[in-house]
């Protein structure tokens, strides 16, 4: 058997056993403690000991969604950062890029995710959706169509939906409360 031990370099000889903390756990700790969020975004941990599941609240201070409070759940699995976090909107909202089940169309949450991205990039990306909704990548087709065809009607629908009103056949959640 090859004597592998003799190949350990001196500096390595001092190396200790690494902690059993998983790579995902360390990376999430790093991401969260280095978050650089504007005052319009806040994280909330239902269990502060569990860093892998939390809520993000976005309160846009400009744009057509100004005044609303939008909530997203984040669920991170042990393959993070090789898999993106799973993010869902926990409210029923009227938005071209969010469907009625809370699925979000944001490229870095799926096809364009890379391990060099982090939680900060995802959060900034989500906030951007409220400033610049994108009618070209629709998840709520009706909202997207309205947005590109009749912008005034769309803006009015946004206002109605945010109050918890009805747009077409759907009643949306009131996001002005809280």
């Amino acid at each position: 058997m090859i004597k592998i031990w003799s190949m350990k370099k001196d500096e390595n000889a001092a190396a200790r056993k690494k902690p059993k903390t998983s790579a995902a756990q360390i990376r999430v700790q790093k991401d969260l403690t280095e978050l650089d969020l504007p005052s319009t975004m806040k994280t909330h941990f239902a269990d502060p000991a569990d860093l892998l599941n939390f809520t993000l609240t976005i309160t846009p201070d400009e744009g057509m969604y100004k005044g609303g409070t939008f909530k997203f759940s984040f669920a991170i699995n042990t393959n993070y950062p090789h898999e993106p976090p799973k993010v869902k909107c926990t409210q029923k909202i009227y938005h071209p890029n969010v469907d009625l089940e809370g699925n979000v169309c944001l490229n870095i949450l799926r096809e364009d995710w890379k391990p060099v991205l982090n939680l900060n990039s995802v959060m900034v990306g989500l906030q951007y959706l409220f400033l610049e909704p994108n009618a070209d990548d629709p998840l709520n087709k009706d909202a997207a169509q309205e947005m590109s065809k009749n912008r005034d009607q769309f803006l009015s629908n946004v206002k109605i939906s945010m109050r918890g009103g009805r747009v077409a056949s759907n009643v949306y959640d009131n996001v002005l409360a809280s």
Binding site: N12, N103, C105, R110, E111
Partner: peptide, 28 residues
């Protein structure tokens, strides 16, 4: 050779990414 050579985790970025389709394409 654990702790001596590059490990599996060192090379994770070489993995072929599994293809994911944009969620809006899937939806619409």
């Amino acid at each position: 050779l654990p702790t001596i050579t590059s490990c599996y985790e060192c090379s994770l970025d070489m993995l072929n990414k599994q293809t994911a389709f944009p969620i809006c394409t899937i939806a619409n």
